[in-house]
Amino acid sequence: MNQVKNFTKGFIKENPVFVLLLGMCPTLGTTTSAVNGLGMGLATTFVLVMANIVISLVKNVIPAKVRIPSYIVIIASFVTMVDLSMAGFLPALHAQLGLFIPLIVVNCIVLGRAEAFASKNTIGSSFIDGLGMGLGFSFALTLLGATREILGSGKIFGLTLFPDKYAMLVFVLAPGAFFALGYLITIMNKLAKKN
């Protein structure tokens, strides 16, 4: 039961984007379409899960004073792996996400989960925590990406819903990212109040 809670908290109750407002840079910068948002979310999920596993494995070996630099090195290693594999296997997506892949390293969600959860819990629960948080992040990014894609170009995952002369291009451009996220959080707040 406890593990189920560990897994589901990342989606709504402690959603890193809508509730905790962490990782704003990739959230706003990569969600020009649903696919880009999903890709960024899954890349972060991989780093989050692997870093959580390794950190909970070595938590007793690392002296408390140097723990943050050690966590950063572990996280940076996995980020480099994602960066290089993506450049090799998914070059188109890698070009779209660009700078934001190496920047997963400074994403507060990853270091935050390492410090707040993985450094105190067993491997099993750290794995589930990382997976839940990562998928919650992916869910938020995909939702924001889909919203911007529908409003901005009349498409969803590349499928045309309506001709793009009726679409508002601004939602694909920079200001639309702020508007879409602002109103999505408003809606989330409204829904949270009702429960």
Partner: peptide, 23 residues
Amino acid sequence: LPKGMKGAPIALVVAGILALAFM
């Protein structure tokens, strides 16, 4: 402001308008 918009949401919308100006 409406309750749901206080804090982060309105800040994001304002940032959006600012980004629009910078465009």
